[in-house]
Design a protein around this nucleic acid. Sequence first.
RNA 1: GCCCGGGUGGCGGAAUUGGUAGACGCGCUAGCCUCAGGAGCUAGUGAGGGCAACCUCGUGCUGGUUCGAAUCCAGUCCCGGGCACCA
Length: 876
Amino acid sequence: MPYDPKRIEPRWQSHWRERGTFRAEIDPSRPKYYVLDMFPYPSGAGLHVGHPKGYIATDVLARWKRMRGFNVLHPMGWDAFGLPAEQYAIETGTHPRVTTRRNIETFKRQIESLGFSYDWSREIDTTDPGYVRWTQWIFARLFERGLAYEAEVPVNWCPALGTVLANEEVIDGKSERGGHPVVRLPMKQWMLRITAYADRLLEDLGELDWPEPIKKMQRDWIGRSEGARVRFAVADHDGVEIEVFTTRPDTLFGATYMVLAPEHALVPRITTAAQREAVAAYVEAAKRRSERARIADAKTKSGVATGAFAVNPVNGERVPIWIADYVLAGYGTGAIMAVPAHDERDFEFATAFGLPIRKVVEGTGQELPSTGDGVSVDSGLISGLPTSEAKRRIVAWLESEGRGEGTVTYKLRDWLFSRQRYWGEPFPVLHLEDGSVKLVPESELPVTLPELDDFRPAGERETPLERAREWMQTVDAETGRPARRDRNTMPQWAGSCWYFLRFVDPRNEREPFSREAERYWMPVDLYVGGAEHAVLHLLYSRFWHKVLYDLGLVHTKEPFRKLVNQGMILGASYRYFDDDVADDGRADVRRYSFREVRAEGDGTVAMDDGRPVKARWVPAAQVRSEDGRAWHAELPGLELEEVIEKMSKSRGNVVNPDEVVAEHGADSMRLYEMFLGPIDKEAPWTTEGILGVSRFLQRAWRLLVDEDAPGEPGRALPAGAGTPEQRRLVATTVQGVTDDLEAMRFNTAIAKLMVFVRDVAKDAPLPREAALAFVKLLAPFAPHIAEELWEKLGHRESIAYAPWPEADPALLVADTVTIAVQVNGKRRAEVAVPSDADDDAVRAAALASENVRRHLEGKTPRKVIVVKGRLVNVVL
RNA sequence: GCCCGGGUGGCGGAAUUGGUAGACGCGCUAGCCUCAGGAGCUAGUGAGGGCAACCUCGUGCUGGUUCGAAUCCAGUCCCGGGCACCA
């Protein structure tokens, strides 16, 4: 019988499960390696082939590290709180706990079928009360340190979802999930003081082995900028000052007007009677204007003069005060000094409203606005100074005069940490009647969710928890006084902020994790997940980790030493177009192939009469391919356009791993995903492509197994290491695969294994030592077949801990090398020379080559360049 | 608009440091095997020319540096992602 993964794979999976092969225990005598996947949210749809790509990569490395003697921690769990289960509960009444449990079962079955070497005894579920307890416990520590506080803040309220959202969850004025409109409302909310850690979050990025783009995104998100606060007196208002933030205090002499954000507190106070009406109208309009509209015409500046004037502290000049929505209330002080000559936005505004423009920096180009550094001019005490020195001097002067000071601001805001939802961690706090807030005593943790049968918000601005009236009303166990529970729950990010710490000691009931386990296993050596978490999860968990560091609970400043973002797996989807733009399914719909339409503006229109059309996606099952083109199986003559894009249900291009495993086996699936290309790049899935790696495994199988003999024994292999060629092939394969694994070049490692199988038994039978080395090299990638072959080679122990082979350095250098010979840079011949031949010998051999002589045409070379082991270039 | 990635055969992708472009795989072609094959095996496969040995062209485009450029430099076009009035 040929290689049959269906027979082999379940057998080894239960073998590993039963023996606890991948159970990890603390062992100070061995070096540890903690390799972690970003744990998934178990959605109802199950996995598609894109999800496991990162898991396969980490599993290959985990298995490889074990074979190299590392004590490997490789856990998996579930980020199981979250909106979809709750939305489903609202629609169907099914408790999110039930949905979540069912989804976890599906995910776990699918993940296990791929043969990952997780230590399942460490499985975590963030919704488990035993986990929630410690999430709440950490929140309590944040609260004690003043890092969690309640504040009345304008929040992103999403009426459709019935909740507020974090800034990060709002994109272009719409919710990230579902794309529902979001409005700004003031509400009392829990906030986490992540801004207190802004500098450390920024600085410590330096030491991390993370992709540069991700680090940069975090830096930009934190958005540190150095500058100064400057106070301008408001003319004719005794003691009233406007404080502005600027990164260019050196341009203070060029300030020709000021701008307040429409929401600025001073606006009503300083507006003159003549301007009152216009200002009120503008403020009102700005309030109504959606985020989206503001962004859309960011280039058109609008604003209104307040009629008031401010006094520039450096020269006593009176400058008009305007309000405009290009100044944001939430950044800096919500007010700016406008220097139109040296700021693009101020320049646009000044041009639009005819305000004066005064140049105070020279040497940055003639065209205004010029925003670069130069030399200050017409600037009193800083005239003639270069920008950096001018900044220093003017800040010193402002400080000595009490008119301002040097300061730093951040784009990063405090983290809005509460949600008006049911399916999340309750806050472990009590609201007492006197309005004070205290923590639920530690002995009372966890605070568990009340049972509900209706999960909708309880009313306009009321939360689902408020339906549980008895649960909400409680008593403070310490004083016996009546108390109200918090009506909010934590956001989904909470559980994932520290799960990597729980994995080191997941069943601890006395503390979140033991000091011993944390000291041994942390930090995470390799963390693999999607780039979509670049700022959110990764910034939040770094923040929590630093708080725990300050509490002495963890011993490293940073949780994740090395980070890798796996690229997506894309699928082919197919589409045509029709003119039923309104989706009303009328009968006379006209259909178009992609060849009959063109893009116009934001949409697509028919080429013949220009009517708008809409794309229709055709599930793969209804696509017929013929002479290299795709056709609709049920609508004859309708040619479909193939589009390679992210897999998603709506596109009908999702490939289910269950089907792939059933047809080709888990080992082929693992190998294929790793063979597709570099791990961090996206790559399209094709059904034919997997046949290549499947064939490779079959060949490997036949190389080692006698399929015709009864019981399919391993072949009787000659003892020893074989011919010199075979020994050399083993050595170069071992070295190559090892180097590739070190650099996570899985695709080229697999290519080298393919070459090995192709060539090793070409001229002589496969020797036993070569077979042993090969099976070990294969094991991290295709563990099931490797175990099976390992057993057939006579081993009783799992290959999981077999020592990784080492290459004999002596075999890595060939006896003879083939050298390319160029004449004037063009390749004309090849010569074989001994690898230790000196340059003169190589040169002689090259010049003696027939084709080279022909191209020399009897001339004497001007120069001959010899690159050792590579080539010879003869220059005429 | 700004900041990152990336453009290599029909396709996915290889190519230590500037040194034989196209490893490996898919697909395709031919042959073998077969009752049959969406199975297996062998060979071929960047384009063009030539019976052949070989020759010419070729890594988005235009220049440059170099004995030699996919690789370095300058400019430019296209694709993907991130940020987007942050003073």
